[in-house]
Simulated scan of single mutants.
Amino acid sequence: MKMKTISVIASLTALLVLASCEHEDTDRQHYDNKLFISAASLTDELLIDETDSYSRDIVAAVAKPESHDITVTFRLAPELVDNYKKAYYDTSSIALPDGVCRIDEPTTTILAGNVQSSPVSVTFENVLELDRNQRYVMPVTIESVEGIGGVLRSAKTCYFLFRGASLINIVVDLSENRAWPEFGNFDEVQDMYAFTMEALVNPTTLNKTISTVMGIEDTFLIRMGDSGVDPSQLQVVGAASSKLTDESLKIPTGEWTHIAVTFECIAQNQSEVKIYLNGELKKEGIFYLNSINFAIPHSNE
């Protein structure tokens, strides 16, 4: 009797589900179609270097097309700088000064049946008059919309950032990685009697026995650490057991350090090696070598 009761209930449930499915509108979407700024990132960083003017485009979009046009108007929103600073943990940026940024035609349209608008152009000028030591931000937000119910709050505003250009603006993360040149028949790197090697490093951690900076093993190598040497201590090693290191050559983590190593042959089988950190001479010594050959092919040693 219990099994029959369960079967009847199950059958009734199945009928109710089928009836529900029959009356469900298959074209109905289970979300609100909202407007948003279409961009891979809502922040765009521009450099104060040699360019006095920039132009950037903003595009509005919806998740699915509508049967009518949607009109969108953007505006500059310097009053939203504090929102940016809180969202991106930036305490030092200030609003871009008046006269640097403008939007000549702030209104655009998403045509019926489309999902993206034509671009709105944001123009920046007199950029070289900005202070290179100051970070600036200009928020641009959606001011008004006609033809759709709402705007996605998290993608309503984008931010244009300005900062002074550095000598190095792009760096590479070499954690668990390596890179090397393919010199081929480049004879200039063979039997070098004088040269300088430079690197700008910012280690995240220094907990390995040896961390290589650059060079060739058993030829001429800049590295940190060694057996019996602190993992953060810089060391220059070469052929014939040549080695130069000192406790003053500790490299900090979490900050940039400029490393420069010079090599110069000063007599037969005698070359002077000097180590500089952030431009300051820290250690010098003699390697009993005439020259260094950097044309040795790379190997996965």
Rank of each mutant, 00 (worst) to 15 (best):
M1P: 15
M1S: 09
M3C: 06
S7T: 08
S11W: 06
L12I: 15
L15F: 13
L16S: 10
V17P: 00
A19H: 00
S20G: 08
Q29T: 14
H30R: 06
K34W: 12
K34G: 04
S38A: 14
A39W: 06
A40Q: 13
L42D: 13
E45M: 08
L47W: 07
T51K: 15
T51S: 12
D52R: 11
S53M: 08
S53W: 09
S53P: 07
S55Y: 11
D57W: 13
D57H: 09
A61G: 09
A63F: 13
E66S: 11
H68Q: 03
L76N: 08
D82W: 09
Y84S: 01
K86R: 10
Y88F: 11
D90Q: 12
D90K: 05
T91G: 00
T91S: 04
L96E: 04
L96Y: 02
L96C: 02
P97V: 01
D98K: 15
G99V: 03
G99N: 05
V100Q: 13
C101Y: 06
D104Y: 04
E105Q: 14
I110K: 07
L111C: 01
G113D: 07
N114I: 02
Q116Y: 12
S118N: 15
P119I: 09
P119T: 10
V127I: 09
V127R: 03
R132L: 00
R132S: 04
R135A: 08
R135F: 02
Y136Q: 01
V137L: 10
V140D: 05
T141V: 04
G147R: 02
G147P: 06
G147E: 00
G150I: 04
V151N: 14
S154M: 08
C158K: 14
F160V: 14
F160Y: 15
S166N: 09
L167M: 08
I168Y: 13
I170V: 12
I170M: 11
D173F: 10
D173G: 11
S175H: 12
A179F: 04
N185L: 01
V189D: 00
A194D: 06
A194C: 03
F195I: 03
T196V: 03
T196E: 08
M197R: 01
M197C: 05
T204C: 00
T205D: 12
T205Q: 07
L206G: 07
L206W: 15
K208Y: 12
V213E: 02
M214I: 00
G215N: 04
G215I: 02
L221C: 04
L221W: 14
G225Q: 03
D226M: 06
V229E: 05
L234H: 10
L234N: 11
Q235A: 05
V237W: 02
T245N: 01
G254N: 07
H258G: 07
F263M: 02
F263D: 00
Q270H: 14
K274C: 02
E284Q: 14
S291M: 02
N293T: 13
I296M: 08
N300I: 03
